[in-house]
C-alpha cells in the first residue's frame, strides 16, 4: 500500500523545496508519493527536471493560486 507524505516548503526559496523533497525521498519506500507544497515558482519547473534526470516518477502539479502542490513518486 503506497503512502503520501506532505512536505510544506511554503515560504522557502530555491533550492529549498527541492532539497526538502530529496531529503524526504530518502526516508520513504519505493512507490510512495511525496507532495511538496511550495510558493517558489521555480519549483514547478525544477522538480520535474530533477525527477526526469534521476529517474523518479512525476505526478500531478496543482496550482492552488497562492502556492503549488508538486507530487513525486519514489521509483528507485
Amino acid at each position: 500500500m503506497s503512502e503520501r507524505k506532505v512536505i510544506d516548503a511554503r515560504g522557502a526559496f530555491c533550492p529549498g523545496p527541492l532539497m526538502e523533497l530529496i531529503a524526504a525521498l530518502k526516508l520513504v519506500q519505493i512507490g510512495d508519493d511525496i507532495e511538496v507544497l511550495s510558493t517558489d515558482k521555480g519549483t514547478v519547473n525544477d522538480v520535474p527536471e530533477w525527477v526526469a534526470k534521476v529517474g523518479h516518477e512525476m505526478g500531478e502539479t496543482i496550482d492552488h493560486g497562492d502556492h503549488w502542490s508538486v507530487i513525486v513518486r519514489k521509483a528507485k
Binding site: 522557502a12 526559496f13 530555491c14 533550492p15 529549498g16 532539497m19 530529496i22 531529503a23 530518502k26
Partner: peptide, 15 residues
Amino acid sequence: KAPDAMMLFEQGKEL
C-alpha cells in the same frame, strides 16, 4: 531568509 549557503553545502554533501 533564503536558504543559508553553509547549510546548502552541508545538504549537498549529505544527499
